[in-house]
């Protein structure tokens, strides 16, 4: 069947303003939106620029706006949309567009780095593994699904008004390390989040949870950080 795609285009070298370019693609209902973009690039217009790699929702490359909703192009199929096979494809909001559907994610990764996203432990490592409760591992498990696609942070209404806010993705990563029983930096981590650009920037809007392509209960995880700060207690 024929689908029409109106795709956001912007080439900094040639365009002063963005525009929408129209393509007609023949596609099956089970085709991914990414398949359609690939077909445009390989068969019609090789100048169309976007990021993609794994093509099955695990690398986080291709978050974009599809018919007004932020999603991974490789995770949405043609049949998922009830728009009479008409599609509008745009880059992620919030971030600066570099070209077409490609945005500058450097600010996103700077915030990720700001939460010290790595396990910190004290003393010598044991000979074998450190022990960890299965319950504790399962408690942080939702955060392990994160693929850093930036869908949540680009959608978050707070991020849009406060550029200094860490945003849901970085806070989710903070949750993963705050609540990991093996980590010894818990108090410092919590203190660093205890401000309006940190965890209290979150106003529990749930948009991040709704948009997350990995089904992570982001808002709930962020709520755990708030709970710990209120309780003044370290481990869950």
């Amino acid at each position: 069947m024929q689908c029409t795609f109106a795709v956001f285009r912007f080439d900094p070298a040639a365009d002063r303003q963005s525009r929408y370019q129209h393509y007609v693609v023949s596609a099956e209902p089970a085709d991914k939106i990414l398949d359609c973009l690939n077909r445009i690039r390989w068969e019609q217009d090789p100048t169309l620029a976007y990021r993609a790699s794994c093509a099955h929702g695990i690398c986080g490359s291709d978050a974009m706006v599809i018919n007004g909703h932020v999603a991974l192009a490789c995770q949405k199929l043609v049949r998922d949309f009830k728009t009479a096979n008409n599609f509008v494809i745009e880059p992620l909001p919030v971030f600066q567009v570099l070209r077409d559907l490609i945005v500058d994610l450097r600010p996103f990764f700077e915030k990720h780095r700001a939460v010290r996203p790595y396990l910190v432990t004290a003393g010598e490592n044991p000979e074998k593994e450190r022990l960890q409760n299965s319950e504790n591992q399962q408690f942080v498990e939702p955060a392990l699904r994160c693929i850093l696609c930036a869908a949540c942070t680009a959608t978050c209404p707070i991020t849009r008004v406060n550029p200094a806010y860490l945003g849901p993705a970085a806070l989710l990563r903070a949750f993963r390390y705050v609540c990991d029983s093996r980590d010894t930096l818990t108090l410092e981590r919590l203190q660093a989040l205890d401000n309006d650009d940190g965890i209290w920037g979150c106003k529990t809007m749930w948009w991040c949870t709704e948009v997350c392509p990995k089904g992570i209960p982001v808002t709930k995880c962020l709520g755990q950080i708030k709970r710990l700060l209120k309780k003044g207690d370290a481990h869950a």
Binding site: L119, K128, E129, Q132, S134, Q137, E141
Partner: peptide, 20 residues
């Protein structure tokens, strides 16, 4: 495997807290 665990890899665990 132990080195990965020390670096922070969150492996699934057995009931007694070892790597599953």
């Amino acid at each position: 495997i132990y080195e990965l665990e020390h670096l922070g890899v969150p492996f699934n665990r057995t009931r007694d807290g070892r790597i599953a």
